[in-house]
Amino acid sequence: MALPNRTGGRFNPRFNRQPEPEHRINEKIRVPQVRLVGENVTVGIYPTQEALRIAQDQEMDLVEISPNADPPVCKVIDYKKFLYEKKRKEKEMKANAKQSEVKEIRFTPGTDDHDFDFKAKHAEKFLKDGNKVKAYVQFKGRAIMFQDRGQLLLLKFAERLADVGVLEGLPKMEGKRMLVMFAPKGSKKAATAK
C-alpha cells in the first residue's frame, strides 16, 4: 500500500506561524494618529507618519504601549533594550516569589496519639515554611463505616494547627478519602479563606 503524498495537502497555519510580537512597532502601527510620549519628545498627538519620523531621527523605535487608548499611546524607545529590561524584571520577580507546595499528611481512622502528634509536628513545620497542607483520612474496606471518627480526627488536627494554619473548609469526602486543606497563617490566601 502506497503512503499518501503529504506535500500536496492543505496549508496548515499552525506549522508556519511566526510568533506574534508583543507590541506593534514602527510600520506595523496602522492608525491615523497617536499620542506620543518618551524621552526627548514633546508629548502630544501626532500623525503616525510624523511620530515614526521622530523615532527614526533619534534612531529609536516607535512602540505602541497602550493600543486601547484613544488615540493609541506610542513611545519612542529602543525596543530590544525595552524587551531585555522587561524580561530581566520578570525573571527577578519570579525568583523573589517563593513557590509554595501542597504537602500531604495521611491518617487512618485508627491513628493513635503518638502518630497524630508526629504528623502534627510535620504539618506545623510545613505551614511555617509557607506551604499548604492537605490532610486526609484514608478509609479502606469496612473502615468507611467510621467516617465520624475521620471527621473528629481532622477537626482535632485543625484545632492543633490553629496557631500556624488556617482551615480552608470543613472536612469533605472525595472517594474513599475525607480531606481538609490548611493555608499558612498570615498568607494572602489564608486571609481570604477566613
Rank of each mutant, 00 (worst) to 15 (best):
18 Q>C: 02
63 V>D: 00
53 R>D: 12
38 G>V: 03
68 N>V: 09
54 I>S: 01
49 Q>N: 14
51 A>L: 07
55 A>T: 07
53 R>C: 00
43 V>K: 15
53 R>H: 10
45 I>L: 04
54 I>A: 02
52 L>I: 06
43 V>C: 05
38 G>L: 03
64 E>K: 00
47 P>G: 11
29 I>L: 04
55 A>Q: 07
23 H>A: 07
63 V>S: 04
40 N>T: 06
67 P>Y: 02
58 Q>D: 02
46 Y>K: 09
56 Q>M: 02
65 I>D: 03
21 P>D: 03
52 L>G: 07
50 E>Q: 15
42 T>G: 04
33 Q>M: 13
26 N>V: 10
47 P>R: 13
35 R>Y: 11
51 A>V: 08
62 L>K: 04
41 V>P: 03
48 T>N: 08
32 P>Q: 08
43 V>T: 14
56 Q>N: 12
18 Q>I: 07
21 P>V: 05
48 T>K: 15
23 H>R: 14
30 R>D: 02
19 P>F: 07
60 M>S: 12
42 T>F: 03
21 P>G: 04
24 R>L: 09
62 L>A: 05
38 G>W: 09
21 P>H: 04
31 V>W: 06
57 D>M: 15
64 E>C: 11
31 V>L: 10
47 P>A: 14
58 Q>G: 05
38 G>E: 05
35 R>M: 11
23 H>L: 08
23 H>W: 11
25 I>S: 08
22 E>R: 14
26 N>L: 10
30 R>T: 12
22 E>Y: 06
55 A>D: 06
40 N>Y: 06
27 E>W: 09
37 V>K: 06
41 V>E: 04
68 N>T: 13
35 R>W: 03
39 E>Y: 01
66 S>P: 01
35 R>I: 01
21 P>R: 10
39 E>V: 04
40 N>P: 01
45 I>W: 05
28 K>N: 11
68 N>A: 13
52 L>Y: 12
50 E>M: 10
53 R>F: 11
23 H>S: 04
37 V>F: 01
35 R>E: 09
59 E>Y: 07
29 I>A: 10
22 E>Q: 12
35 R>H: 12
23 H>M: 09
49 Q>W: 08
29 I>D: 09
44 G>V: 11
57 D>I: 11
57 D>Y: 13
60 M>N: 08
45 I>E: 15
47 P>N: 12
52 L>T: 03
60 M>V: 00
25 I>T: 15
64 E>I: 00
63 V>G: 00
36 L>A: 03
28 K>Q: 13
57 D>H: 11
41 V>F: 02
52 L>M: 13
34 V>H: 03
66 S>R: 14
67 P>E: 05
50 E>P: 01
52 L>N: 08
66 S>H: 10
62 L>E: 00
36 L>I: 05
28 K>H: 08
39 E>L: 05
29 I>F: 03
34 V>N: 05
64 E>P: 02
40 N>L: 12
63 V>I: 14
19 P>N: 10
26 N>Y: 09
41 V>Q: 03
23 H>C: 06
25 I>G: 00
44 G>A: 11
63 V>Q: 00
